[in-house]
Simulated assay, not measured.
Amino acid sequence: MDGFKKSSHTVHDIKYHVIWVTKYRYKVLSGPVAIRTRELIRQGCEARGITILQGSVGKDHIHLLLSCPPSLSPNKILQYLKGRSSRLLQDEFPELKKRFWGQHLWARGYFCTTVGTVTEEIVRNYIANQFNEEKNDILRIEE
Score class of each variant (00 low, 15 high):
residue 4 F to K: 13
residue 59 K to T: 14
residue 123 V to I: 15
residue 75 N to R: 07
residue 66 L to D: 10
residue 115 V to D: 02
residue 39 E to I: 03
residue 140 R to D: 02
residue 54 Q to S: 11
residue 44 G to R: 12
residue 80 Y to N: 14
residue 102 G to A: 09
residue 79 Q to W: 00
residue 127 I to F: 07
residue 75 N to Y: 02
residue 29 L to K: 09
residue 109 G to R: 10
residue 114 T to W: 02
residue 43 Q to G: 01
residue 42 R to S: 07
residue 76 K to C: 02
residue 142 E to H: 07
residue 88 L to P: 10
residue 79 Q to P: 00
residue 117 T to V: 04
residue 50 I to F: 13
residue 38 R to V: 02
residue 71 S to H: 13
residue 100 F to A: 01
residue 58 G to W: 06
residue 116 G to A: 08
residue 50 I to G: 13
residue 81 L to Q: 12
residue 103 Q to N: 15
residue 64 L to V: 14
residue 32 P to K: 09
residue 39 E to G: 00
residue 27 K to S: 10
residue 128 A to F: 01
residue 14 I to S: 05
residue 60 D to H: 11
residue 76 K to P: 00
residue 120 E to T: 11
residue 92 E to S: 12
residue 103 Q to Y: 10
residue 17 H to E: 04
residue 9 H to F: 02
residue 14 I to K: 06
residue 45 C to H: 09
residue 16 Y to M: 04
residue 49 G to P: 11
residue 23 K to H: 12
residue 61 H to R: 07
residue 136 N to C: 01
residue 99 R to C: 00
residue 111 F to E: 04
residue 27 K to H: 10
residue 104 H to C: 03
residue 38 R to Y: 10
residue 12 H to W: 15
residue 18 V to C: 13
residue 87 R to C: 08
residue 98 K to D: 12
residue 90 Q to H: 03
residue 78 L to F: 00
residue 50 I to R: 11
residue 89 L to E: 10
residue 116 G to Q: 03
residue 92 E to G: 04
residue 64 L to H: 11
residue 5 K to H: 11
residue 28 V to L: 06
residue 130 Q to G: 12
residue 19 I to M: 13
residue 47 A to R: 14
residue 120 E to Y: 04
residue 139 L to C: 11
residue 96 L to A: 01
residue 90 Q to I: 01
residue 20 W to M: 05
residue 46 E to Q: 14
residue 47 A to T: 04
residue 118 V to I: 15
residue 41 I to K: 05
residue 33 V to M: 05
residue 125 N to I: 00
residue 105 L to M: 02
residue 107 A to L: 08
residue 103 Q to W: 08
residue 97 K to Y: 01
residue 118 V to C: 10
residue 22 T to L: 05
residue 128 A to L: 06
residue 120 E to Q: 11
residue 43 Q to H: 07
residue 76 K to H: 09
residue 48 R to Q: 15
residue 74 P to E: 01
residue 97 K to T: 01
residue 4 F to R: 13
residue 113 T to D: 09
residue 14 I to T: 07
residue 34 A to K: 12
residue 10 T to R: 13
residue 40 L to C: 05
residue 127 I to Y: 01
residue 21 V to P: 06
residue 100 F to H: 02
residue 73 S to V: 03
residue 119 T to G: 04
residue 115 V to P: 07
residue 131 F to I: 03
residue 59 K to L: 11
residue 18 V to G: 06
residue 63 H to D: 07
residue 123 V to R: 07
residue 85 S to T: 14
residue 39 E to K: 13
residue 1 M to N: 09
residue 4 F to C: 08
residue 31 G to D: 13
residue 98 K to L: 04
residue 61 H to N: 05
residue 47 A to H: 12
residue 97 K to P: 00
residue 43 Q to T: 03
residue 22 T to K: 12
residue 84 R to C: 04
residue 31 G to H: 04
residue 51 T to W: 12
residue 53 L to M: 10
residue 27 K to C: 09
residue 135 K to H: 10
residue 5 K to R: 15
residue 94 P to G: 05
residue 28 V to C: 13
residue 46 E to Y: 06
residue 16 Y to F: 15
residue 33 V to G: 08
